[in-house]
Write a protein that binds this DNA or RNA. Structure first.
Lengths: 204, 204
DNA sequence: AAGATAGTTGACCGATTGGTCTAGTCGGGC
DNA sequence: GCCCGACTAGACCAATCGGTCAACTATCTT
């Protein structure tokens, strides 16, 4: 088959950057094309609408991140340390992005989902599905922590949802207030929410 | 001074409805005017831009809700019951609105703040200020609960922020997933986050 | 080299966007 | 009764919006 193009990826990359930094509504198809170095025709060759491009963008981004998630939440890592690694990872990434764009961007799934959820079923379903996948990492880490006696969590699913909500609330607030500090402190908050049993400082 | 008009309020009311239900970006000035029964001229007589109208809308809405907040978080009410009342209030209101518009709308401050925060400083500042006011209700309820020995909260400010984030994360998820269930269960989650000391079921 | 397939180009479209402006209407104070 | 300031009416604007389309080009297979 003739001619292989990386344009589709360049378009989803450009869309992720622009929509995440600004918003779905404030990002025009023209702007996405310009950043991707594409013309309108190419855009609508790959995607049938702006909405569909957005769903594809979230999907593509999630596929990229999944490997990192698997690494951080690997079963070989002590369960509570998985959370530390994950929260550090997100924090560092957002702090890095802030240097470039001047803003703490929070979680694209939440921003986009909450903006277009009521109006666009395709995007909503995509966001839903990805969020579902993500909470599962939390869930099994919590289950493992419980099994090892590190925390008391008779209902790992509920606890996972709770921590998930708490973290996402913090991410949203970090975006709104443009403040990375909330995220810096979250590891401690998470321990509190999880009910980590206290060990004396410095204990091995 | 001749002629007093309620148009300003009708415009902010219309704006709140439309922006909350859909989004800032998806709501046009024309649509707001139509719902308010106003013409463009009136709109730009009262507000100098869509952005300023939005800030004024949030402000006006907050002023309306403040009385309810004061009532629910009254010092005469047992501190933990204040949260129950508040969570019930929000739940019932969102469930009611769902009947009309078919969607769980979550918190307008979060939706709007997270959508336009990076692009509109006026709106961001307004959202910030209101969120600050709201968390203070949590804070003093927690302080009171701690004083009465109902919970252990040596740092009420931190605990308030934590519960606030957790609740707002839940509200955001409720909007994205269009599911009121998460909110129905939140009173229990809140008790968990607050670390309410367990009393045997049925204890007086 | 030919043909089929995959991708690109950019002009074009009607609708809608946020916003302006001028002319006018209404109603209370004097 | 008239004047002034608060408010309304709605035509108008350039810019931009998401989306279409027919013509074109590049690359692989045979």
């Amino acid at each position: 088959m003739p001619r292989v193009s990386d344009m589709k990826e360049r378009l989803t990359d450009a869309a992720m950057e622009l929509i995440w930094e600004n918003s779905y509504g404030a990002t025009s198809v023209d702007a996405i094309c310009e950043r991707a170095g594409a013309k309108k025709g190419s855009f609508y060759y790959f995607f049938k609408s702006k909405s569909q491009l957005t769903a594809a963008t979230l999907e593509a981004d999630w596929n990229k991140r999944k490997a990192d998630m698997d690494r951080m939440f690997s079963s070989t890592i002590p369960p509570l340390e998985r959370f530390d690694r994950y929260f550090d990872y997100v924090h560092d990434r957002l702090a890095e992005l802030q240097k470039t764009c001047g803003s703490i961007l929070g979680c694209p799934l939440l921003t986009i989902g909450s903006e277009v959820g009521t109006q666009d079923q395709v995007v909503r379903d995509t966001v839903d599905r990805i969020l579902d996948s993500k909470v599962k990492y939390f869930e099994s880490a919590i289950r493992d922590a419980h099994a090892q006696g590190l925390i008391e969590a008779p209902d790992p699913e509920a606890k996972a949802k709770m921590l998930f909500a708490c973290y996402h609330g913090t991410l949203t607030q970090a975006r709104i207030q443009n403040d990375v500090g909330l995220l810096r402190d979250f590891k401690d908050v998470a321990k509190d929410v999880l009910g980590v049993k206290h060990v004396p400082a410095g204990a091995s």
